[in-house]
Amino acid sequence: MLERGYGAVGYDAVAPNARHLVLRHDLDMSIDAAVTTAEIEAELGVAAHYFVLLRTEMYNPWSDHGRRQLDRIAELGHEIGLHLNASLYPDDAAALDRAAAEECSVLATLTGRPVEMISFHRPSSALLGRPDDIAGRSHSYQPRYFHDIGYCSDSRGAWHHGHPFDHAAVGEGRALQLLTHPIWWDRDTARDPVAALDYFRAERDNVLMHALADNCEPYRAARGASPDESIEPTNG
């Protein structure tokens, strides 16, 4: 995209008829994969928006490791926003607004930085194109970011809106919001979603085994201080 004359800008600076690229990354599964992406972008001299889930089983942004990784992303010049799972809250605009405000406050406390943008995790059709702010903040599916400019996403590990280079907005030299999920582009598993998720699961299993060894004497006595990730579970 950079070679086609596009420049990366933030949501607040995008102009529909300019070669502006809004880079968005939703952290659905891995903060570590996001750091890799953030470092590559920093080397290219571009800044992006990284949206973090707070209520997820996939990672813990409050762990020492998680906080260090988020700090690293911010130190590289990227913006950190909230990735809000609206399905966890009542289907009521006021309730969702309160929940978003609370999660933004928590994320701001975690990162020590203001949270100014929200993206929705697996949004319902009612949220796509919603014109109103939420919790006093813009969100990535408002018409000016979702309809007035081009939109392209790699959701579920594939370009369901077509490849970015083939997007009509790019062909016309107009602005584009490009959403990618770092998990799909990490390591050599790129372009194979199942392989990427298998690798991610193995990494998480390894982290859990080492945490058990660090914190549970019987497990450490049986498996050692550095358990082998290939250990087969026992019956019973």
Rank of each mutant, 00 (worst) to 15 (best):
D64V: 15
A74G: 10
L107R: 13
C104S: 14
D148V: 11
D192R: 15
Q177D: 04
A195N: 10
L54P: 00
T180I: 07
A211P: 01
R220K: 00
V35W: 10
E203Y: 04
G150K: 04
A34F: 09
R223K: 01
G7Y: 09
L96W: 01
D228I: 00
G5F: 01
L70W: 04
E103R: 15
P193S: 06
G81T: 13
L2C: 08
L107C: 10
Y219T: 01
I80Q: 02
T36I: 12
A158C: 05
Q142I: 12
G224T: 08
A175F: 07
A100N: 05
Y199E: 02
A100K: 08
G129F: 04
A225Y: 03
R220N: 07
A95P: 02
D214I: 05
P131D: 11
G136I: 07
Y89I: 12
R144D: 00
Y6D: 13
T180F: 10
R204N: 02
T111V: 09
V170D: 12
L82R: 12
V170M: 00
D214N: 06
H160W: 09
H65P: 00
A211C: 01
P123R: 10
H139D: 11
V22K: 05
H163A: 12
D188I: 06
I31Q: 05
C152W: 02
A38S: 14
Q69I: 08
H167N: 15
G162C: 04
H210M: 06
E229T: 02
A158E: 04
G77N: 05
M58Y: 12
P123E: 11
D12E: 15
M117V: 14
D71V: 08
R201D: 02
D64H: 14
D12R: 15
I183F: 09
Y50Q: 08
L88F: 01
N60E: 10
H160A: 07
W62T: 05
Y141I: 10
L197N: 09
F120W: 00
